[in-house]
């Protein structure tokens, strides 16, 4: 059983890291966005492995279902850069600087810190063999309306503000939009033109 879990963890970790590498390295922006979705999936699978089912489902719902769709939409609305051939990464010394920053952060800061820290992981809860009593969606829901009520409301306000802000920022003036007439509108226009012709002809 332990071996199975370790194997699954290895696969999920490889998926997350591999997909993330493809996101930053691939030339085609659309492909990058698709790899990003694969990476989100991997993170969702990791949540499942960590027994946070609710978060795994929310991860798929929000990241895969909403954010990645938004990103794909934005890429398609800002075309011309999706093709191959265009240089996607910064060039020269700046590229090497960013590589150095990220690699050093990982190798010098994160890994030694994680390795040297002594984590006191408590033993599994509950009796041996039985499923552990973990905090589930019911506890989360209760927490949101009692302990974290203020934060919950603030998050709601933030989302509303972001929604309105996004609409205002991306709004295009009506007059600047190119407009194609529908058949009904064309018909109505003709009717009006004919009606305005009539008194002129008298």
């Amino acid at each position: 059983m332990t071996l199975v879990i370790q194997l699954i963890f290895g696969l999920v970790a490889a998926l997350i890291i591999g997909a993330a590498m493809m996101v930053v390295l691939v030339r085609n922006v659309i492909h990058a966005a698709l790899w990003l979705i694969a990476c989100f999936f991997g993170v969702g699978a990791l949540y499942l492995l960590l027994q946070a089912e609710f978060l795994a489902v929310v991860q798929v719902l929000i990241y895969v279902g909403a954010i990645s769709i938004l990103i794909l939409f934005a890429i398609m609305l800002t075309r011309q850069v999706t093709g191959e051939g265009v240089r996607q990464l910064v060039g020269g010394w700046r590229l090497w600087l960013t590589v150095a920053i990220s690699a050093l952060l990982f190798a010098v800061v994160i890994v030694p810190t994680v390795a040297s820290q002594q984590w006191n992981v408590p033993p599994p809860l509950g009796p041996e063999g039985a499923p552990e009593p973990l905090a589930g969606p019911a506890e989360l829901g209760r927490g949101f309306v009692s302990e974290f009520l203020l934060q919950f409301e603030v998050a709601g306000v933030l989302l509303t503000v972001a929604l309105i802000g996004a609409i205002v920022v991306a709004y295009e003036e009506r007059a600047r939009r190119r407009r194609v007439l529908t058949l009904a509108e064309e018909h109505e226009l003709r009717k009006r033109a004919a009606a305005s012709d009539q008194p002129a002809g008298d």
Binding site: A20, M21, V24, V99, S102, A103, F106, V114
Partner: peptide
């Protein structure tokens, strides 16, 4: 941590 560093690089 690795995911964070890759994201930072990107």
């Amino acid at each position: 941590g690795a995911l964070f560093c890759i994201g930072l690089f990107g």
